[in-house]
């Protein structure tokens, strides 16, 4: 159980870890890389939420005299070819990236959980069918599948989220299914069955909470790859369309064309993508260590 492992870690640390701050501090000391990841993520989340407050230029407003302006006190990261403030675009871009990352992860996990639980719990022909469908989805590389879906659905924010979430489904479903299968055999589920709880109630009350830990580990790993996939799709022109400030889009043709006269157009969005994915990876690693000690490295 998620709670128990985390508690046990704290117990091992002894009575010194008192209160929320104490616990946080303890965890920070124990997982320095994870803490860095959490800080990076917190930074981007806050930037995305407070975008209106921490920028002073409209990320969409074009301005001829500022075309390709170099970074300065007013334009922290310079301006793109249409004179749009790159700093504002990066900050607002965090919204898009996080929306796509979190949205597609949640959607993918929800679908995966549903399929995995149903498949593991119901078994039989349903399980067989689902397994085959998951096989099919896993036989195609993430980007290829996302590409075809993105082309089929057309370029927009929602469609990008859907296109990216679909390839995430099978890996989530797999994990949930195997956990469900393993848990079904356990004593407390049998006991619940013995006292006459319905199957769906057992699934909801007992099996789901027990799969939260691996799910969190998986979701954080997916978050990073979802953000990367969005960037790749947008780079290839099949993701988030203009004028939304997507980081991947910012790196595509326009930026690359001016990469020597205006290298900031290539450097800053690239750093933003890398940093946010780096953050999720660090955080994901720490969460895995914390929640799933079997895989600890």
């Amino acid at each position: 159980m998620a709670g128990t492992q985390y508690e046990s870690e704290l117990v091992r640390a002894g009575a010194r870890a008192q209160g929320a701050w104490g616990q946080a501090l303890y965890l920070a000391r124990q997982y320095p890389l994870g803490t860095i990841g959490a800080v990076i993520m917190a930074f981007f989340v806050i930037a995305a939420l407070a975008a209106d407050l921490i920028t002073w230029r409209d990320p969409l407003a074009t301005n001829a005299p500022l075309s390709l302006a170099a970074p300065s006190a007013d334009l922290w990261m310079g301006a793109d070819v249409m004179g749009r403030d790159l700093y504002s675009r990066i900050i607002y871009g965090a919204r898009i990236s996080l929306a796509v990352g979190i949205g597609s992860t949640i959607l993918g996990c929800a679908l995966g959980v549903l399929v995995g639980l149903a498949s593991g719990y119901l078994g039989g022909w349903f399980d067989l069918l689902m397994q085959r469908i998951m096989d099919i989805m896993q036989a195609l590389p993430l980007l290829v599948l996302a590409l075809v879906f993105a082309a089929a659905l057309g370029p927009s924010l929602q469609n990008t989220i859907i296109a990216i979430s679909i390839p995430l489904v099978p890996s989530v479903a797999r994990v949930i299914r195997s956990n469900t299968l393993a848990l079904r055999e356990l004593a407390f589920v049998e006991a619940a069955q013995a006292i006459g709880m319905s199957e769906w109630r057992i699934a909801a009350r007992h099996i789901l909470p027990n799969t939260v830990a691996p799910l969190i580990v998986l979701a954080t790993a997916q978050l990073g790859s979802a953000i990367l996939t969005e960037a790749s799709l947008s780079f290839l022109g099949l993701g988030i369309p203009e004028p939304h400030p997507s980081w991947g889009r910012m790196l595509s043709e326009t930026a690359a064309e001016y990469m020597r006269t205006a290298p900031w157009l290539v450097i800053f969005p690239g750093i933003a993508i890398s940093a946010v994915v780096f953050g999720t990876n660090l955080l994901g690693d720490a969460l895995r260590d914390l929640l799933d000690p079997r895989q600890r490295g």
Binding site: T62, M82, A151, G154, P155, P241, P243
Partner: peptide, 25 residues
């Protein structure tokens, strides 16, 4: 095609028109 469309939307804002870019493959 996209770049001038973005500017057009900016100019339409001045006369009470909210343009939404509809990118078509």
């Amino acid at each position: 095609y996209r770049d001038p469309a973005v500017i057009l939307i900016d100019h339409l804002k001045e006369i009470y028109i909210d343009g939404e870019l509809d990118i078509v493959e």
